[in-house]
Design a protein around this nucleic acid. Structure first.
Length: 346
DNA sequence: CCGCGACGATCGACAGATGG
DNA sequence: CCATCTGTCGATCGTCGCGG
């Protein structure tokens, strides 16, 4: 088994740098409500409908800010975005507000309490003001979710999370300040995993700090959604090219190509991958072709099985766990603590 | 052109089995 | 007897092709 890097596969360009086909995507499961309705058995509502105009994000960015800097009047119903066909481009946002949109879009779901610490120096009032403003403009949605009671019976805690709306994504793409290969997500998906997903942002903050300390710049983040997408696409392409080829072999090669761990016959997909530019001469997971490095992060929860944990450990991810799950996880791997000596606390 | 279904893959939840 | 581990199932994500 060896591993020579498969020579130039056409795809390598995609992850190398250029933008994946649709940087901002055409298929976001947009509306969580529709999603919910569908799972309730409502026929005819398809959560995967794609916004027709999202195909060429840069076309839209061509439109400059109108001279009219007046903010559009709020819609009558605050919960309903002012769908005044593009008037949103006229909105002028303060740096903090833009940053807030960026974080929500990049991570799909972020806890407002985390934003308060990372963007607002712990001050609740300014954050509340901005949230209200953005919500009134139909750019974001906030909602309270119940946290899974980890251990046994514990009081049920609720936390507020924020997500982007489709209008919010459009504005974000336009007023950019985002790397063009940075995907932006809208709406809440996988309600059961909100707690887990919202922790990814925390892990990212911790890890990005370390990366920047080592000189990494221009950090980008890829969520598991995007990585999974790349994997599926690559596998599909390989199968199509050679239908009789062994699946295991294909998977292994795809894993190698995307630089993802292959453990127990499975491609390990991290919760998120941080990509960054790097000064030459640093060790790290340096990509041979470009001066781009990446670090994969994983958020462990108490629900993980031992075998699962083992796979994650062998994968070489940067593993994080919340303090509440920390003890549970530690006990699970107590026997072979050699396998994961570094779980970082969230 | 758009929506639906086929397929593959992963993860969480649940239940039965196992060990101290 | 209780706590933990393992196996299976369902839900959800993603891809693509087909048909109205």
């Amino acid at each position: 088994m060896k591993i020579d890097i498969p020579q130039e596969l056409p795809h390598r360009r995609e992850n190398g740098g250029a933008v994946p086909e649709h940087s901002a995507t055409r298929k976001l499961p947009d509306n969580p409500i529709l999603h919910r309705l569908r799972s309730l058995g409502e026929p005819g509502t398809d959560a995967r409908r794609s916004p027709p105009r999202a195909k060429h994000p840069h076309d839209e960015s061509a439109s400059e800010l109108p001279h009219d800097r007046r903010r559009p009047a709020p819609s009558a119903d605050p919960r309903r975005p002012a769908r005044t066909g593009g008037s949103i481009v006229g909105l002028e946002l303060r740096p903090e507000e833009k940053q807030l949109l960026r974080e929500a879009g990049r991570f799909r779901v972020v806890r407002t309490s985390d934003l308060r610490e990372t963007l607002y120096q712990g001050k609740a009032r300014p954050l509340e003001n901005d949230l209200k403003y953005l919500r009134d403009k139909g750019l974001i949605e906030t909602r309270f979710v119940n946290l899974r009671r980890d251990g046994r019976r514990r009081t049920i805690e609720r936390t507020e999370v924020v997500t982007l709306t489709k209008d919010g994504r459009r504005l974000l793409l336009k007023q950019g300040d985002l790397p063009n290969d940075q995907r932006v997500y809208t709406g809440l998906v996988k309600p059961r995993e909100i707690e887990h997903d919202s922790q990814i942002y925390r892990a990212y903050r911790k890890e990005s700090e370390k990366i920047e300390k080592k000189g990494g710049t221009n950090l980008r983040v890829k969520l598991d959604f995007e990585i999974k997408s790349q994997v599926q696409k690559a596998i599909y392409a390989e199968r199509k090219a050679d239908p009789k080829r062994d699946m295991a072999e294909i998977k292994e090669e795809v894993a190698l190509r995307l630089d993802l761990p292959f453990v127990d016959g499975k491609i390990q997909i991290p919760d998120a991958r941080i990509e960054f530019d790097q000064p030459s001469g640093v060790d790290h997971n340096l990509d041979d072709r470009t001066l781009t490095g990446h670090e994969d992060i994983e958020v462990l929860t108490a629900a993980y099985h031992a075998g699962h944990l083992r796979a994650k450990a062998q994968a070489g991810f940067r593993n994080y766990a919340s303090s509440s799950d920390f003890s549970t996880i530690s006990s699970k791997i107590e026997d072979d603590h050699h396998m994961m000596r570094d779980i970082l606390e969230l």
